[in-house]
């Protein structure tokens, strides 16, 4: 029973950053902008949080939370590159996102070299501490983020406009919605959430930022958006499932029945599941109609 509780806590620890980043990806894609830069934006957030926490830890009480805020701000600021090129200039969203991914890997390690003289940040002493049942408070942050996103997307006027921009931008524009502004804001929101996710990841799962800290978590989040069919409840379920797969890859040595399986089996699971579901649901298209397409006023 104790082992089970420990495993559950590990699942929540792994799933929380995935869910936060995936929520960001969902918001961006529902507005019509594909954001494959989630991976890179998480790296920016993780680097910012690890660095800020290292410097603030000795003097500022509760510096983990301040570091998370800074991580969120850094992700938001950095996503402005993707927002500007893909929304304002109408650039290819995949190319722009790839550029941001390449840029952020280089920039974070570059800055670590400048600040710390080596290819990783100095380790901080204590990250975010687990609460009751060993559950990290990042799980509560993640739950708040997805519930908040659901409320805004389905219960507020701005959410209606956001969905309209992703489904049929011309109709939205004719109803007086400023499509570019909505999309710009959605990309910034996804950047902020990806930054926050990176911060949560580095402060709960490790003690410093290295080039391998994110290690595909942003792409898993991207997969969770597709597998979750762009719906808040779907994305939450997908993130929990993928978090469990990632946790199993690490904790399976403790489970008698699973010891014979290679850990790579669980590591690869999120990606395989996503591929299989994409094929299974290929007949019906759940993706927002206009996702990935640049929009120009008066084009038709």
């Amino acid at each position: 029973m104790n082992a089970f509780a420990g495993f559950l806590a590990a699942v929540l620890m792994m799933a929380s950053p995935i869910l936060i980043a995936a929520t960001g990806g969902m918001i961006s894609e529902r507005s019509g902008v594909v954001n494959i830069a989630l991976e890179g934006l998480m790296a920016i957030g993780a680097f910012t949080a690890a660095t800020a926490h290292y410097f603030l830890e000795p003097s500022v009480p509760g510096s983990v939370w301040l570091s998370l805020v800074l991580a969120c701000a850094a992700g938001l600021a950095f996503s402005a590159i993707h927002a500007y090129s893909s929304v304002i200039l109408g650039a290819d969203q995949v190319v722009s996102g790839t550029g941001v991914n390449l840029l952020s890997t280089g920039l974070t390690v570059f800055l670590a070299q400048i600040l710390f003289g080596r290819e990783r940040t100095e380790p901080f002493r204590l990250g975010i501490m687990p609460g009751v049942f060993g559950i990290y408070p990042t799980a509560i942050v993640a739950a708040a983020v997805i519930v908040g996103a659901w409320y805004v997307i389905y219960r507020r006027p701005i959410g209606l406009r956001l969905r309209a921009c992703g489904e049929h931008p011309h109709a939205a524009a004719s109803a007086g919605v400023d499509v570019k502004r909505v999309r710009f804001g959605a990309v910034l929101a996804s950047g902020g959430l990806a930054g926050l996710a990176g911060g949560c990841l580095v402060l709960t799962q490790t003690i410093q930022y290295t080039q391998n800290t994110i290690n595909g978590a942003g792409f898993i989040a991207l997969a969770a958006v597709s597998f979750g069919r762009w719906l808040p409840e779907g994305v939450a379920g997908a993130s929990a499932l993928f978090g469990a797969a990632v946790a199993l890859a690490i904790y399976m040595v403790n489970v008698e029945a699973l010891r014979g399986l290679p850990s790579e089996f669980f590591s690869a699971m999120p990606y395989v599941i996503t591929l299989v579901t994409l094929v299974l649901f290929s007949g019906r298209n759940y993706a927002p109609e206009a996702a990935g397409k640049a929009w120009e006023p008066g084009g038709s």
Partner: peptide, 19 residues
């Protein structure tokens, strides 16, 4: 890592060029 940064910048600028 400056080499990676320059690669990344080049890709971002390429996406802007198309735009």
């Amino acid at each position: 890592e400056i080499a990676l940064i320059i690669s990344g910048l080049v890709v971002v600028f390429v996406s802007l060029r198309a735009a």
